[in-house]
Design a protein around this nucleic acid. Structure first.
Length: 558
RNA sequence: GUGCCCAUAGCUCAACCGGAUAGAGCACCAGCCUUCUAAGCUGGGGGUUACAGGUUCGAUUCCUGUUGGGCACACCA
């Protein structure tokens, strides 16, 4: 029998053939294959007949009848039925489902890897925090969602570059410099002379202390030593930025997030990229001078008002280097770019896209893509937490990792749709009980590991098991979950929705726990034992693959 | 005031680009450990999908309006 693992695609192709035969003039219709909610509706369903009813001016059930008659034979399909208003329900053969176990064990960590991206290059920019303080919960959500998205895209066959953009130029860095200088001089944030825009967190005092002690900061690419000179603003500035970059790097490392490329806003200035972009925009004819400032007519590209590019004091506004940066991304050959950001920055989207369109260098209209995540609020003892000792006014990512651990933090921050606001309940994330989905999933993995260890046999032997013995309701349910995994990766990659992986893993774990409670694995019958162990070994493999996408560990013991 | 996001069980959230009887977990009630991990499982009650219209074979999903919540509306980043 032929081996099929992507049943949705397979069935879709069968219907495409049937469609050509039944209605050759309707081949433009998209064929949608879905998984019915109810088991009695089969394993897969197709609504093609109902879609065709209007254009063909025939009843859906008649069309369904004709489609089924024209459907090419496939040995993975056992039964086809017409139901309801004209649904075509398909039932897979047991053998087709059982074959998935061998496929998973054979592919191992590669199970779930797709070719959707076909090796094309995609760049994902995320976190991109200003080097003016420690990373907070919001950055954590960006890190978790962005990193998981990268993992998902990689699994879907894309060549992914992870990038972090440092806004190390501009007014906020001047504020940082001044704040550190004041701390060096012994001025504290509660002093009346402390500037309104100054940074107040305790970490500023740490930076000042290190600067005065002439410490050397080692970042991945450079070393910076504080001069200790309180009046040397240039030195303070370099030192403070280096110090905080190092802090953020440590936070990210503790969160198991790594970047391929760090881009510096300051470099766009020193390398003349900003100036070049301005000149190109002027040449494009979309700019004008008014009241001593240079404006970009972003209203030509859908903005509700024009934006200042160059202020009367000669400095550029923030979006100008941002446009220059994105022009660089384009030139570096990224046909696809995804920016993961907090929703509070959503207003930049229109401006950046407008700037890129004004440049008229062939960049598509909706480029780049954006994934925006909504705000995170942190809950502890049922009350909202707002203050961190370290940062002053917000909860840091480090606080969360220290308190609830990396696994739970990553899971909770990535497990919600980015579009909805997130409540991070510290007590829930810490709880070692069945309320906590992280432990629920990891526990399933640990249970399987223990069974396999107790068994102590050779894993390779499981490939030879008689999978035909797997036909209890629990086994069939688990098989179906394993079959669904690649489809989840596909949806998550296409919708840029990494949270789907988290939901899937909960369902997979649930199917396993039910199975675990209903049956024993280390039974006397060798054939049965091997078949069951093969199934749970495959389950553990898919769990491990999925958890890896989330950046959550798959423990052998708990 | 304008723009973007959101609104689903008491609580936290799903629902595969418009499908069939809207699903999980928690909480509540009743059960399951002489056995490979009870951090688990089984069963039960719980819904006018914020509200009002519209589009069509069919709407939680798309459109319009209303209400409520969040964010953004600088010659800031």
């Amino acid at each position: 029998m032929s081996v099929v693992f992507n049943f949705k695609n397979h069935i879709s192709e069968l219907f495409a053939q049937a469609l050509r035969e039944v209605a050759s003039d309707q081949t433009g219709v998209t064929i949608l294959i879905e998984r019915p909610k109810q088991a009695s509706h089969g394993d897969y369903a197709c609504n093609l007949a109902m879609q065709l009813a209007r254009p063909m001016k025939k009843s859906p059930r008649d069309i369904a009848q004709a489609l089924i008659a024209a459907l090419p034979k496939s040995d993975v399909i056992e039964k086809v039925e017409i139901a309801g208003a004209g649904f075509i329900n398909l039932f897979l053969s047991k053998a087709a489902k059982q074959a998935i176990v061998h496929a998973v064990l054979h592919a191992g960590a590669g199970y779930g890897h797709l070719h959707l991206g076909a090796g094309r290059r995609v760049q994902v920019e995320f976190v991109s925090a200003n080097p003016t303080g420690p990373l907070h919960v919001g950055h954590g959500r960006g890190a978790a969602v962005g990193d998981c998205l990268c993992n998902v895209l990689h699994a879907a066959g894309w060549n992914v570059t992870r990038e972090f953009y440092y806004n190390d130029a501009g007014a906020q860095i001047d504020n940082l410099t001044r704040s550190v200088q004041l701390r060096c001089k012994g001025v504290t944030p509660d002093d009346p002379s402390w500037p309104e825009a100054g940074y107040r967190g305790d970490y500023i005092a740490d930076v000042a202390r290190a600067y005065l002690a002439k410490e050397t900061i080692e970042a991945d690419d450079q070393r910076t030593t504080g001069s200790g000179d309180v009046e040397d603003l240039v030195s303070i500035r370099h030192f403070a930025v280096a110090y905080l970059r190092r802090e953020q790097d440590l936070d990210l490392r503790a969160f198991n997030v790594e970047f391929d490329v760090f881009s510096l806003e300051s470099a766009l200035y020193t390398e003349g990229k900003v100036e070049d972009t301005v000149n190109r925009l002027i040449a494009s004819g979309h700019t004008y001078e008014q009241e001593g400032a240079l404006w970009l007519r972003t209203t030509d590209f859908g903005d509700d008002k024009d934006r200042v590019m160059r202020k009367t004091d000669g400095g550029y506004t923030y979006f100008v280097p941002d446009v220059a940066y994105h022009l660089e991304k384009w030139r570096r050959g990224f046909v696809r770019v995804i920016n993961e950001q907090g929703a509070d920055h959503h207003s930049t989207i229109t401006r950046v896209r407008a700037g890129l369109q004004a440049l008229d260098v062939g960049i598509p209209k909706g480029w780049p893509d954006y994934v925006l995540h909504q705000m995170v609020t942190v809950l502890k003892n049922g009350e909202e937490v707002k203050i961190s000792k370290r940062a002053g006014s917000y909860v840091t990512l480090r606080d969360l990792i220290d308190e609830v651990g990396c696994d739970a933090t990553r899971y909770f921050l990535a497990a919600r749709h980015p579009d909805s606001q997130l409540v991070f309940d510290i007590d829930l994330a810490k709880s070692r009980s069945n309320d906590n989905p992280v432990y629920y999933i990891q526990y399933a993995h640990a249970r399987i590991s223990t069974v396999l260890e107790t068994w102590g046999g050779e894993r390779q032997a499981l490939l030879q098991a008689d999978f035909g013995l797997l036909d209890s309701e629990f086994e069939i349910a688990l098989l179906q979950q394993l079959i669904d995994y690649p489809q989840v990766i596909e949806s998550a990659a296409q919708d840029l929705a990494p949270h789907l992986v988290a939901f899937y893993l909960k369902e997979l774990a649930a199917a396993f726990h039910s199975y675990y409670n209903a049956s024993r694995f280390l039974v006397d019958d060798e054939q049965v034992r091997c078949a069951r162990l093969a199934l749970i070994a495959a389950t553990a493999q898919v769990m491990s693959n999925g958890l890896a996408l989330l950046g959550v560990s798959a423990p052998e013991k708990m």
